[in-house]
Simulated scan of single mutants.
Amino acid sequence: MARSVVGAFEIVERALESRNAPVYVRRQFVHNATAVEDLAERGAVFVDELDEVSDNATVVFSAHVVSPAVREQGLNRVFGGRGSGCAPAG
């Protein structure tokens, strides 16, 4: 796995340990069904867009580039958001 994917996986694991489930993950960051299923069983909910997430929820952004607009949308919704990987685009 790429370093950013390993980092994202670890961040989701830490969020699940320290926050109440669910922990939302914007975009599936690993193409390993077993790993995704394991996280989902522990309370991770994978979503495509932020409008699928409740206000004030914990969100981990994918390991892929997250645009400044998406980060801003997350901050405006007052998420406990944490970036999990690469530098923002732009």
Rank of each mutant, 00 (worst) to 15 (best):
A15S: 09
D51L: 06
V60F: 06
R77V: 07
V45G: 11
H31D: 11
E49G: 11
R77Q: 07
F29M: 09
L50I: 15
V5S: 05
R26W: 01
D51F: 13
H64I: 05
A89E: 13
F9S: 06
A87D: 02
A8C: 09
V66H: 04
A2L: 06
S54W: 02
R19V: 00
S84V: 08
E13Y: 01
P22L: 13
R14D: 14
P68K: 11
R14T: 11
Q73Y: 00
V36D: 11
P68D: 12
E37K: 01
V78H: 10
G83V: 07
N32G: 04
R27G: 05
A44F: 00
R19A: 03
V65W: 01
F29H: 15
A33D: 06
R3C: 02
H31W: 10
G83D: 04
T34S: 14
A87T: 04
G81E: 13
R19C: 05
A63D: 00
T34V: 12
F9L: 12
V47K: 01
M1H: 11
G74M: 10
Q73V: 00
E72K: 12
L50K: 14
E10Y: 06
D51N: 15
S67K: 05
A89I: 07
D51W: 14
V60S: 05
Q28P: 02
L39C: 01
I11T: 04
S18D: 14
A8V: 01
V25N: 08
A15E: 04
F46H: 07
R77H: 07
R82M: 04
V23T: 10
R14Y: 09
L50S: 13
V6Y: 04
Q28K: 10
D55C: 11
H64V: 02
A69H: 08
P22A: 10
R77S: 06
E41I: 09
R3F: 03
V12T: 08
A69G: 08
V66E: 09
S84F: 07
Q73C: 01
C86Y: 03
S4N: 12
N56V: 05
G85H: 12
D55V: 15
T34R: 15
A8K: 04
V23M: 07
G90W: 09
V23L: 08
E52N: 10
V65M: 02
G80Q: 03
S18K: 15
D55N: 15
A2H: 09
F46N: 06
L75W: 06
E10Q: 14
C86N: 02
S62V: 05
Q73L: 00
V65I: 05
R77M: 12
G80E: 03
R3N: 04
G74F: 11
V30P: 10
